[in-house]
Design a protein around this nucleic acid. Structure first.
Lengths: 147, 147
DNA sequence: TCGTTATTGCAAATTATTGGCAATAAAAAG
DNA sequence: CTTTTTATTGCCAATAATTTGCAATAACGA
């Protein structure tokens, strides 16, 4: 999934947590996803590998994974939470409003500014949400493309 | 509410739209709110003025207002949509995770960077979501405070 | 191998928001 | 001002996404 290479999934879940068959499958599904699937899509993919996985378990597992910092959830403007494994290097997203396609990008400049703004307001930045929405410029074609 | 001063609310709603009593009250409530109330809170405040206003109407009215560009809706991390009248000058928000308090801020630098990044990726920026989350720095006290 | 208890499946419950429909009331027409 | 047209409302049932109760099951430390 993500985190220090070499650390077992089990260990990353935290003390008292069990690494069940369904959690392994869900972790694999998330790990293999290059897009940003929502809970039911993850359930679909997981159930294809092991039919003994319920949607409830997917929801509960995603919550556990999120608490363990293994995944991140975004909304991308829609009603369902979309998932991605916590990336080694943080990035934000641009959503193509004409296709729903999600493009990842990273800006040191923006990251720096956010922390600076928070500090100026008297806060320590602990997290943020940054999503850009736009449509393709006439003629130009996007390079990266992930949904 | 917002928009060109002197233009009637009625006109701003758009052609074929009616300025009903409940819409006037809801507009007043939103106008008077210095915080960022959600639908049920707006309903509570509106019903205090005129009990003949239902929650359904609040939801429908907020949708109409949003389409007319009179208000903006944000999530601030929670499940309910939070509302604010469209400000004359756009701003973003920092949410105090210890109190839920919302602080508004504006950064020309970030606004510029977002548009630039979108353009570099081949997109024309049409909107964005930027929310910072953080906790107060020890000792310092925030200046602005809105919830 | 066993016992403890975290986890699961299933169904029912919640939460936020939307939709159907007959009644009502803006505002357009006369 | 009265009539007509039809957008809007209230009430309530319906969705949609996610959560929870509970008995059965299965991790995994002893």
């Amino acid at each position: 999934m993500s985190g220090e290479v070499g650390t077992s999934l089990k260990a990353r879940l935290g003390a008292g947590r069990r690494l069940t068959g369904q959690r392994k499958v869900i972790a694999d599904v998330v790990q293999a996803s290059r897009d940003h699937p929502d809970a039911s899509e993850i359930h679909r993919r997981a159930a294809a590998i092991d039919p003994r996985i319920s949607l409830s378990t997917v929801y509960r597992t995603l919550k556990v994974f999120a608490e363990a910092g293994l995944i991140e959830q975004h909304s991308f403007g829609g009603p369902r939470a979309r998932v991605e494994r916590t990336p080694n290097r943080h990035h934000d997203h641009l959503i193509d409003t004409t296709t729903g396609r999600v493009i990842e990008f990273r800006s040191e400049e923006i990251e720096r500014l956010q922390a600076e703004i928070a500090r100026e307001l008297g806060y320590e930045l602990t997290g943020h949400t940054l999503e850009l929405y736009g449509h393709p410029l006439r003629g130009k074609t996007a390079r990266t493309s992930k949904s």
